[in-house]
Simulated scan of single mutants.
Amino acid sequence: MLIILLLVVFMIGTFFGFMFIKNTIAHWLVGGISFLLLAGSVTMLTMHIRDNWGMKEVTTSTTHQIYTAGDKSAPYGMMIKAEIGKNTDNYVFVYRNNEKSEKADTNFKPDEKHISEAVKKSATYKLVDDTKATVTTKTTRCVWSSDFYKLLFSVGGEQNELVKQNSVVSVPKDTWLVLTQDQVKKLSQEAPAMQKQMEAQLKADPQKAAQLAALQKSNPTEYAKMQVKQIKQLLGITE
C-alpha cells in the first residue's frame, strides 16, 4: 500500500522540517508542505477505509433456465422453497440446474464458513406469465476506479470484493408449483388417492378420458395447467 509509505515519508518530513531546519523560510516551507501532504494522505486513507474511496461498484447480471425438482416425466414443474428466517423473503430453493440431472440441486444455501459474504446474498422468487422457469442473478462488486488508486491503496483482496448479490427465480404461475417441504410431503401422501379417484372418474367416462389423452398430446401446456390447478386445490394454495 503506497499510501502507508507516503504517510511515513510525510511524517518524517514534517518532523525534520519543524525540528531541525533553522532557516525560517525553509523551516515553514518543508515542515508546512509535509504537514499538509500528511493531513491530505490521512484524509484520503480515511475516506478509502470508510467509503471505499478510489473504488467503484460494477453490477453484472446472468440468467439461465432451471428445471423441475420433481418427477421429470410429470407434465408440470416443481420448485421447493425454504425461507431463511421469518418474513425475510429470502429463500433456499431446490430445483435442477441441468435438465439431464438425476437429482435436484439445493441452491442459495448460506455458506456458514463464509458468513460475512453469505449475509450479502439473497434469493427470492416471483410468479410470471411464461412457460419456462429462469433464475436471474445480479452481482455487485467493488473494483478499482483506476490503476493509480490501486497502486495507492491496494493491499490485496479488495478487487472484486462482493457488495451484494440478489437472485430472483421466475416461475411460470400456471404450469409450475412452488411448494414447501410440508406441502411436498402432503402431496406425496394424497397423490395416490387422488390418482385412484381420477382413474375411477375416467373409467366411468370414456369420452372424457379420450379428451384428456388427446389434450395431453396436442396441448401439453394446457394439460399441465389443469394438473397444477388440481394440485393447488388439493393443497389449499391460492396464490
Score class of each variant (00 low, 15 high):
V169C: 08
L5V: 13
M79V: 13
K81R: 10
K232C: 01
F20D: 10
Q195W: 09
W28I: 01
Y125L: 02
L2Y: 01
K186L: 06
T124L: 05
A118H: 07
M79N: 00
F18P: 10
V30K: 03
T136C: 01
K126N: 05
G17F: 13
V228A: 08
S188I: 05
E83F: 01
M198G: 14
L38G: 13
Q201K: 15
L235P: 02
T139A: 00
K186D: 08
V128G: 00
G54R: 03
K173G: 05
H64I: 00
Y67D: 12
H27F: 01
Q189W: 09
D174W: 01
K132I: 03
F108W: 01
T238H: 14
D174L: 03
N90W: 06
E102P: 00
S34V: 04
V184M: 08
M198Q: 15
V155Y: 14
P75G: 06
E117R: 10
S146C: 10
D130A: 13
L151W: 12
I21V: 15
N90H: 06
F18S: 13
V178E: 09
I84C: 11
I3K: 05
K217L: 02
Q165D: 00
S116G: 06
W144Q: 08
D182I: 01
L37S: 14
G70D: 03
I4Y: 15
V42G: 09
A200C: 06
V155S: 15
F20M: 14
I12F: 10
Q211E: 15
A224W: 09
L177F: 09
V169Q: 03
G236A: 04
K113N: 14
V178H: 06
Q230N: 06
T43C: 05
K81Y: 04
F93H: 08
N97G: 15
G40F: 13
L234Y: 00
G13H: 10
I49Q: 10
N52A: 11
K164R: 11
N52K: 12
D130C: 01
R50W: 09
Y223C: 02
G157F: 04
A26Y: 12
V168G: 10
V9S: 14
N107A: 14
K225T: 07
F20P: 09
S154F: 04
Y91V: 03
V42L: 15
H114G: 00
L36Y: 14
N52Q: 11
Y91S: 05
L2R: 02
F18H: 12
L234K: 07
P110I: 00
T139H: 00
W176N: 11
F16L: 14
S101I: 07
D89A: 11
L152W: 13
R96G: 03
M19S: 15
K164L: 01
V135L: 02
Y76R: 09
D129Q: 10
Q181D: 15
R141N: 13
V178D: 09
E199R: 08
A213W: 03
F10M: 13
K86R: 03
V58F: 04
Q216H: 10
Q207K: 15
V178F: 02
A69R: 04
I12S: 02
A69C: 07
T140C: 09
L162Y: 03
K113I: 04
A39R: 10
M198C: 10
M47A: 15
L187T: 03
P220V: 07
E222L: 05
F148M: 11
S41Y: 11
A69H: 05
Y95V: 04
K22I: 03
Q181F: 07
A104E: 10
